[in-house]
Amino acid sequence: MRILIAPDKFRGSLEADEVCNAVEAGILLAYPAAEITAIPLADGGEGTMEILTNLSRGTLVNVSVQDPLGRSVNAQYGLSEDGNTAFLEMAVASGLKLLSREEYNPMKTSTYGTGQLLLDAIEKGVKNIILGIGGSATTDGGIGMAAALGYRFFDRSENLLEPVGGNLSLISRIDSEQVHKGFDSLNVIVACDVTNPLFGKNGAAYIYGPQKGADSEMVELLDKGLKNLADVASKTFGEDVSNVPGSGAAGGLGAGCMWFLNGKLQNGVGIVMEQAGIEKLVQNSDLVITGEGKVDEQTLSGKVVQGLAGICKKYNVPLAVVCGTLLISPEETRSAGITYAVSVLNKPMDLDAAQRNAFTLVKEATFNLVRLFFKQ
């Protein structure tokens, strides 16, 4: 029997490749003759860059860039084996994880470091860029990233503005005369899994600003700033993208990528699965086993499990899900196209114990589910 293992990470305990190893160990205990293919997946967020780099047999590139507050930090991106494609995560340069909680302030943070990563890749001659934009510490509409690439932002008095969230409302003119010339044939795909518009009550500032340190007054100022950016950028580039689903992702970086990079927003899971050739692998499998730390309603709207469920349903291949916490009903499981879902927790235990023993728990849960599917 041919079994495809294609999980996401179990956050806090196992990376996706470690989940693959645990699932494979469980399969071989239950069915030693199984023909196994293991492909670690991601939803476009943390870990996506490493997975895409490995799938392309690429290498990691180290670059010194600015963190969200302008300090020097070492960051990495992936470069495919043929040198044509770069895989970037904005979080390694402009992510909330780079700041202490006391430093959270989207009025002062910038995506400039993400632009520096892009610039390094462009100067290496890449033709394609895949950029993940989850986990940002910023609400600057992408002007920091753009500034690193040569865009300049001026106020009404023609003063050059620092590209931070607090200056969005002051922008009167966008200048592109000094923009790097490597954009002409560049294809930019942005991994984006939220659908928020750029501004408004469901926009970048109101929905995500507070978790980045914005109080109610800051949220209102940032929202007005993003609207001002939309007005100026729409006139400059001849297109208003502020209501495109995902334009509000990563503090408006979604919109910034469309305006400043001519980027295209795509579902992160879809990008990873396309790069991995998952559809063909599913088609040639008798069972697909996936999983992630928590399976809940959010899982069923754009995560790895949901993406695989659609493909498995298309080819009538059963899909089994192993997870730490299972929070969907049997009706939701069936409706999602999941054949079998199980929590790895086999007795009462606290979170620390579950995380410490995650490998063994996943292995044992997999053993039990495979015995259900393939009787010997």
Rank of each mutant, 00 (worst) to 15 (best):
F260M: 09
L253V: 15
A22E: 12
I328V: 15
I189Q: 03
G268P: 05
D193Q: 09
I130G: 04
A250T: 00
A255T: 10
R57F: 13
N74C: 11
F10T: 00
L226F: 04
F10K: 03
T290P: 00
D193L: 15
V65R: 04
H180R: 06
N243T: 14
T139W: 01
A249I: 07
S216C: 04
T59E: 12
I130N: 08
I278V: 11
G238E: 01
Q283S: 15
T109S: 15
C257R: 03
A365R: 00
N62T: 12
L369Y: 01
D8K: 02
T236C: 12
V190M: 03
A276P: 12
A353F: 11
V288N: 07
V342W: 10
G134W: 08
A25L: 09
G144C: 12
L361W: 08
V126D: 06
V344G: 01
G134Q: 04
G246V: 04
E279N: 02
R11K: 15
M49D: 05
S335M: 12
V164H: 07
F260R: 03
S285V: 03
P330W: 13
I278K: 10
E292T: 07
L168K: 01
A38T: 09
L161F: 12
D8A: 07
T85Y: 08
E103R: 02
G150L: 08
C20F: 07
P245G: 11
Q266K: 10
A121V: 09
K181V: 09
L96W: 04
G291Q: 01
Y31G: 01
Y31P: 00
S94H: 10
K97M: 09
S285T: 11
A86N: 03
A137E: 08
S285E: 08
V295Q: 02
L361C: 11
P348V: 06
D82N: 13
G209A: 04
N167K: 05
P40M: 11
D155N: 15
L351F: 13
